[in-house]
Computed example of a mutant assay.
Amino acid sequence: MDENLTFAIEHLAYGDREEHDTMPVFDSEYYLRSNPDVASAGANPLLHYLRAGRREGRLPRPPAHVQNDQAQAQDAPANRNTEERAVGTVAVEEMEAAAKRYAAIYRVSPVLHSEDHMLAHFLKLSAEGGLGFYFKGGLADAEQLMTTIEKLGIDMDNLRVLEFAAGYGRLTRHLQKLCDLTVSDIHPEAVAFVSKHCGCPTYLSSKEPEQLKIPEQFNVVAVISLFSHLPDRTFGRWLSALYALVAPGGYLIFTTIGESARAINAQIPTPGSDGIAFEAISEQIDLDTQDYGNSTVHPHYVGFQIGRIPGARLVSYHAGVWWKYQDQYVVQKTF
């Protein structure tokens, strides 16, 4: 018998004897809906919960009040307005109370946008599971980025950060409380939304890196999960364009998908001898998949691209430090 299956059966039968509790009722469909990272990795939901999810505080089934709400919804007449706004498959009005609760906990804006690709990715049918991951994960990412910046020895009192490819504010709503923040995104609606609800200066990005118009420089330019989507045709060009926005002595921090991600998702494309593999596949249907898909890169490829930029110095490389899936590179502008 497969050792993974044996592991699951033993825990279902006996529970965790060291913790003196038995295995709670497990809802595989709910677990995958509420944890899109597990679903996208193709992991067995029960095994993931037993080995990691339980320690991480992930729920094995919907909370009692969500189950009750779902039961009531099934019994209620179908009188919902078909014009109702929705994020993913859940009506915005259905999420407002939950969003306000999370926003009060984290002291951030509760406002959500119906075109938020990240929220739609997290949120399937359960407002509680996906929404909680959206808010809590945004805070965790903001804290991780700030910890990285602090370790660089930057003057935190005068820190100016550009968050590039910011989307609809999952990270921004937390990060703007921690630094002097400017954001940029390619979606005009996202730029307008973040400006209004997060109060940050904003710039609209561009399809081609050479067309980017941001007339400022920053101590840190942070690019979380953009280079994991770029083809070879624009990878180095975007690296140069964003490096140009770094003030002398400042840093460009960005993430990529490398071989460390294969432990979670064995299906990621394998780079060839040039060090990059690109698939023209994307959940963001409003973007051309030839420009924005899924890419896997080897460190030597990234190092080569950095080496082509005059004055760029690779300060650090850490594999899998973002969500145990993406690698982080920190590049300093030496002149």
Score class of each variant (00 low, 15 high):
residue 136 K to C: 09
residue 279 E to C: 07
residue 118 M to C: 10
residue 163 E to Y: 05
residue 183 V to N: 03
residue 142 A to W: 03
residue 192 A to W: 00
residue 132 G to P: 09
residue 35 N to F: 05
residue 109 S to I: 07
residue 200 C to Q: 04
residue 175 L to A: 07
residue 143 E to F: 03
residue 124 K to G: 13
residue 153 G to Q: 06
residue 105 I to G: 00
residue 55 R to E: 15
residue 231 P to G: 04
residue 10 E to S: 12
residue 265 N to E: 06
residue 278 F to S: 03
residue 236 G to R: 01
residue 45 P to C: 08
residue 318 H to F: 09
residue 180 D to R: 14
residue 125 L to T: 13
residue 83 E to G: 09
residue 304 F to C: 09
residue 327 D to A: 05
residue 24 P to I: 09
residue 16 D to S: 15
residue 237 R to P: 05
residue 163 E to R: 01
residue 91 A to T: 11
residue 94 E to W: 08
residue 117 H to P: 01
residue 42 G to A: 03
residue 88 G to N: 09
residue 254 F to H: 04
residue 48 H to S: 12
residue 97 A to V: 09
residue 192 A to H: 06
residue 252 L to Q: 03
residue 58 R to G: 02
residue 124 K to N: 11
residue 273 S to Q: 11
residue 64 A to W: 15
residue 120 A to G: 15
residue 66 V to D: 04
residue 148 T to Q: 13
residue 98 A to V: 11
residue 110 P to G: 06
residue 209 P to D: 05
residue 247 A to E: 15
residue 320 G to T: 07
residue 40 S to P: 00
residue 84 E to P: 01
residue 73 A to I: 03
residue 287 L to G: 03
residue 221 V to S: 02
residue 281 I to F: 09
residue 191 V to E: 00
residue 252 L to C: 05
residue 277 A to N: 06
residue 182 T to H: 08
residue 245 L to A: 04
residue 263 A to G: 08
residue 3 E to F: 07
residue 8 A to F: 05
residue 334 T to P: 01
residue 35 N to P: 04
residue 32 L to C: 07
residue 191 V to Y: 00
residue 7 F to I: 06
residue 6 T to W: 12
residue 27 D to R: 08
residue 299 P to E: 08
residue 49 Y to Q: 10
residue 64 A to M: 10
residue 300 H to Q: 12
residue 81 N to C: 14
residue 239 L to Q: 09
residue 53 G to Y: 06
residue 108 V to Q: 02
residue 65 H to T: 12
residue 208 E to R: 14
residue 94 E to Q: 12
